[in-house]
Computed example of a mutant assay.
Amino acid sequence: MSAKERTPTTAVAGLDGGGLEVREAQRYLARYGYLSGVERAAADEGRLSEPLEAGLRRFQRFARLHVTGTLTVETLKLMRQPRCPMPDFQPEELGGPGVEDSDPFVFSSNVWDQRNLRWSLQTGTPDLADEAAAVQRAFDSWAAQVPLTFTQVSSGTAAELTVEWLTGDHGDGSPFDGSGGAGFNIYAHAFYPEDGRIHFDEAESWAHSHGSGNVDLESVALHEIGHALGLRHSGLSDAVMYFAINSQRRALHEADIRGIKSRYPPVVAAPGQRAVAVPVWALKNGGGSGTVQVDLGTTRRVLAWGHVTMVDSLNDADRDNAWAIEVFDVDGNRPGGFIFGGEHFGSEEAPCNVYSGAFTGRARRITFRATSIHTFDLDIFGTGNILLLDDLEGIE
């Protein structure tokens, strides 16, 4: 259901006069990146103000709630759910991926340069005898989508990723708050590449299922490993990278898959070539997304563009059959993104069936991404194309 289709919900009583709920919301928005430093300084403690209204709108838009700029019941309920303590945005972004940015499916920070990663269990939990197996399954779910491997090594061996169970203030700047804590009920946290630390709160009751006071380890590990690989939060409630943790979720959503594939594409080496064409496809069983990176070996002057060669309809061919093949990344930088439509192109806030076109300039590594916007409707096939412009003078 889109944001505009939701029924407006009742604002919290006493909002205009201020109160504990408003202070709670203000702390939440400041902690998770919905208020800039200037807005935090300008916010009126305990009362609805323009900075707080702006932060509420950002949160409601990101979380696919009805956007009102007021503290509605559904907004407060969501803020009170257990969640990951990683900020959804950095305050200076004033929105960031999924809000004002042009690609709501990618929630990224840095990435690992190497593709064969080791992980070690530094300390476990007495709640489970096989916690390492659950963590390895979570690693394997991500590895099934991208060219990464995760190998467990002993705790005394050097490892890129480390897993630990800790309690309270454990010295990393992000203290745990205990089981059902008085803060925001934090289960675990992780750090972006290339830090490698993944921490779980020992005060929680860890199990192989979610509910009745237990926390499902594999679900939480799947989410935190996403952070450790460089993904950020999603506002899609079905995604593993959703910021709130309210259910057992062990299967990656298409948004998670699109995000991780965008950050870790397979690489095709193409040194010394005057022209390159590489296949790229977006299939339903691959999350509706596909990426490939071409490494030219040296920085060259290029013209690059994506081209759809075939569309295979899986359902009815209607107006929401949107797709794109784009030049997604050039030497670590985004040259553009989807052109977004409103109500007239597919669903509200979804990419429409046009894309940002070609890239020309100097580059060494070019990443193409294919996207099928509605994966239940169609698969797409195409090519990523590169023409070396600095070689054209030698062609008769």
Score class of each variant (00 low, 15 high):
residue 11 A to W: 01
residue 12 V to T: 15
residue 13 A to R: 15
residue 14 G to A: 10
residue 15 L to F: 02
residue 17 G to Q: 15
residue 19 G to A: 07
residue 22 V to N: 03
residue 27 R to K: 14
residue 31 R to E: 14
residue 31 R to N: 10
residue 34 Y to T: 00
residue 36 S to F: 03
residue 36 S to D: 09
residue 38 V to Y: 04
residue 38 V to Q: 13
residue 39 E to L: 05
residue 40 R to P: 00
residue 40 R to L: 05
residue 44 D to L: 13
residue 47 R to A: 11
residue 51 P to G: 08
residue 53 E to H: 05
residue 66 H to D: 10
residue 69 G to C: 07
residue 71 L to F: 01
residue 73 V to K: 08
residue 74 E to Y: 01
residue 75 T to Q: 06
residue 75 T to M: 06
residue 78 L to H: 04
residue 89 F to Y: 09
residue 94 L to S: 04
residue 102 S to T: 06
residue 103 D to S: 08
residue 108 S to F: 07
residue 117 L to Q: 08
residue 120 S to T: 12
residue 130 D to L: 13
residue 131 E to L: 00
residue 133 A to V: 13
residue 136 Q to F: 04
residue 136 Q to W: 00
residue 136 Q to V: 02
residue 140 D to K: 06
residue 140 D to I: 05
residue 145 Q to I: 01
residue 147 P to R: 05
residue 148 L to Q: 05
residue 154 S to Y: 00
residue 156 G to E: 06
residue 158 A to E: 02
residue 162 T to C: 03
residue 163 V to R: 01
residue 167 T to C: 01
residue 168 G to M: 10
residue 169 D to L: 11
residue 169 D to A: 15
residue 173 G to T: 10
residue 176 F to S: 11
residue 178 G to P: 05
residue 181 G to Y: 13
residue 182 A to E: 14
residue 185 N to K: 12
residue 186 I to S: 03
residue 188 A to P: 10
residue 202 E to K: 14
residue 206 W to D: 10
residue 208 H to F: 11
residue 208 H to A: 13
residue 210 H to N: 15
residue 211 G to W: 11
residue 215 V to S: 09
residue 217 L to R: 13
residue 223 H to K: 14
residue 224 E to W: 04
residue 229 L to A: 08
residue 232 R to W: 05
residue 233 H to A: 13
residue 236 L to T: 10
residue 238 D to T: 13
residue 240 V to Q: 03
residue 244 A to N: 12
residue 246 N to G: 12
residue 248 Q to G: 08
residue 248 Q to N: 07
residue 249 R to K: 14
residue 250 R to Q: 14
residue 250 R to C: 10
residue 255 A to D: 08
residue 255 A to L: 05
residue 256 D to G: 06
residue 258 R to C: 08
residue 258 R to Y: 00
residue 261 K to N: 04
residue 262 S to T: 11
residue 265 P to A: 07
residue 269 A to G: 02
residue 271 P to F: 04
residue 276 V to L: 02
residue 282 A to E: 00
residue 283 L to W: 03
residue 283 L to M: 07
residue 285 N to S: 06
residue 287 G to T: 01
residue 288 G to V: 00
residue 290 G to R: 08
residue 291 T to Q: 06
residue 294 V to K: 07
residue 295 D to F: 04
residue 297 G to D: 11
residue 301 R to E: 12
residue 301 R to I: 02
residue 302 V to R: 02
residue 303 L to C: 00
residue 305 W to R: 05
residue 306 G to E: 07
residue 322 A to L: 03
residue 322 A to R: 09
residue 326 E to I: 14
residue 326 E to L: 09
residue 327 V to W: 04
residue 330 V to H: 01
residue 335 P to H: 09
residue 335 P to Y: 10
residue 336 G to I: 06
residue 337 G to E: 10
residue 338 F to E: 05
residue 339 I to L: 14
residue 340 F to T: 07
residue 342 G to T: 11
residue 343 E to Q: 12
residue 344 H to I: 01
residue 352 C to Y: 09
residue 352 C to M: 14
residue 353 N to R: 15
residue 354 V to E: 08
residue 358 A to Q: 14
residue 361 G to N: 11
residue 366 I to G: 00
residue 367 T to I: 05
residue 369 R to C: 01
residue 372 S to R: 06
residue 377 D to M: 05
residue 378 L to K: 07
residue 380 I to L: 15
residue 381 F to T: 07
residue 387 L to A: 05
residue 389 L to V: 13
residue 389 L to D: 04
residue 392 L to R: 14
residue 392 L to V: 15
residue 395 I to T: 09
